[in-house]
């Protein structure tokens, strides 16, 4: 990055680069936590009441929300780069990226609703 002088013709290069890494750092902390919780549920170390107690806590709701937001940003940018690399026809690429964005927003909203639904 020290030697990069031109941010690219769309001038969005640095912003994408920065957001991809910021979300990566957030995910590096939060994603292993949720995976560990899932393994604990799998092994029986946490039962349903225990799981609900953990998920109900306001701290884990906030962390879960941050996780979802970071995941949406990170996955959108990652998949966008992959599509831009392998789908060369603009007539396919643009609708594909748009469809992906709409689908992922839908999943994100549904997930947020699940997290905040029960009082």
């Amino acid at each position: 990055m020290r030697t990069v002088k031109e941010p690219g013709s769309a001038h969005g290069g640095l912003s994408d680069w920065y957001w991809q890494r910021l979300s990566a750092v957030v995910l590096a902390f939060l994603l292993p936590l949720s995976f560990l919780l899932m393994l604990m549920v799998f092994s029986g170390a946490v039962d349903q009441q225990g799981l609900l107690d953990i998920l109900d806590h306001v701290a884990s709701r906030v962390l879960h929300t941050l996780l979802i937001l970071a995941l949406m940003v990170h996955a959108y940018m990652g998949l966008k780069v992959i599509l831009e690399d392998y789908v060369h026809m603009l007539a396919w690429r643009i609708p594909l990226i748009a469809t992906m964005l709409v689908l992922m927003s839908g999943f994100g909203i549904w997930w947020l609703a699940l997290i905040w639904a029960w009082a």
Partner: peptide, 8 residues
């Protein structure tokens, strides 16, 4: 999401 939905 499906797992979380089922478990809650």
């Amino acid at each position: 999401l499906w797992l979380l939905h089922g478990m809650t």
